[in-house]
Simulated scan of single mutants.
Amino acid sequence: MDYCAGLLMPCERNSVEPMASIVSPGRASGAHQSLLHFVGQSAWSDEATLAKFRELVAPAFPAQGGVEAWIVDDTGFQKKGSHSVGVARQYCGRLGKTDNCQIAVTLSIANHHAGLPIAYRLYLPESWDNDAERREEAHVPEEVEFRTNLQIALAQIEAAMKDGVAPGIVLGDAGHGCDGAFRAGVTALGLTYAVGVGLASRRRAIAAQAPERPARKPSRVRHDADHKPVSAKQLAMRLPAEAWKDVEWREGSNQTLSSRFAAVRIRPASRDHTLAAPHPVEWPEGGRSPRNTGPRPCPRTCCSTFSSMSSSCAGASNATTRN
Rank of each mutant, 00 (worst) to 15 (best):
Asn292Ser: 08
Pro284Cys: 02
Thr274Tyr: 12
His273Trp: 15
Arg288Thr: 15
Asp272Cys: 07
Thr305Tyr: 06
Pro278Thr: 00
Thr301Glu: 15
Pro290Val: 04
Gly287Asp: 04
Pro295Tyr: 10
Pro295Gly: 08
Pro280Asn: 08
Arg288Lys: 15
Thr293Lys: 06
Glu282Lys: 08
Ala277Ile: 10
Arg271Gly: 04
Cys302Ile: 03
Trp283Phe: 11
Gly287Asn: 04
Leu275Trp: 14
Pro284Val: 02
Glu285Pro: 02
Glu285Cys: 06
Thr305Phe: 06
Ala277Arg: 14
Gly294Leu: 04
Pro284Gln: 01
Asp272Gly: 02
Ser289Ala: 15
Leu275Asp: 13
Cys302Asp: 09
Cys298Ile: 04
Thr305Val: 15
His279Trp: 15
Thr274Asn: 12
Gly294Val: 03
Thr274Glu: 13
Arg291Tyr: 04
Pro290Thr: 01
Ala277Lys: 07
Ala277Tyr: 13
Glu285Met: 09
Gly287Glu: 02
Arg288Gly: 11
Ala277Val: 13
Val281Ala: 11
Gly294Thr: 03
Arg288Ile: 09
Pro290Arg: 04
Pro280Gly: 06
Ala276Ile: 01
Pro295Ile: 06
Arg291Asp: 03
Ser304Phe: 14
Glu282Thr: 07
His279Asp: 09
Ala276Phe: 05
Arg296Pro: 00
Ala277Ser: 09
Gly286Leu: 04
Asn292Gly: 06
Pro295Met: 08
Val281Ile: 15
Arg300Thr: 11
Pro290Met: 03
Thr305Leu: 10
Cys298Leu: 06
Thr274Val: 13
Trp283Ile: 01
Pro284Asn: 05
Ser304Val: 08
Pro295Phe: 10
Val281Pro: 05
Ala277Cys: 14
Asn292Phe: 00
Arg288Met: 11
Pro299Tyr: 11
Trp283Asp: 00
Ser289Cys: 10
Gly286Asp: 05
Val281Glu: 06
Gly287Pro: 02
Ala276Lys: 03
Pro295His: 08
Thr293Cys: 14
Gly287Thr: 01
Glu282Ala: 13
Glu285Tyr: 08
Ala277Trp: 11
Glu282Trp: 02
Ser289Arg: 07
Asp272Phe: 11
Pro280Ile: 07
Thr305Met: 12
Arg291Asn: 04
Cys298Ala: 13
Arg288Asn: 13
Arg271Ser: 12
Glu282Asp: 05
Thr301Gln: 15
Pro278Phe: 06
Cys303Asp: 09
Glu282Arg: 14
Leu275Arg: 11
Ala276Gly: 12
Ser289Asn: 09
Glu282Pro: 01
Pro280Val: 07
Arg291Cys: 05
Thr274Ala: 13
Gly287Arg: 00
Pro297Lys: 01
Pro290Trp: 02
Gly286Ile: 03
Cys302Gln: 08
Pro295Leu: 08
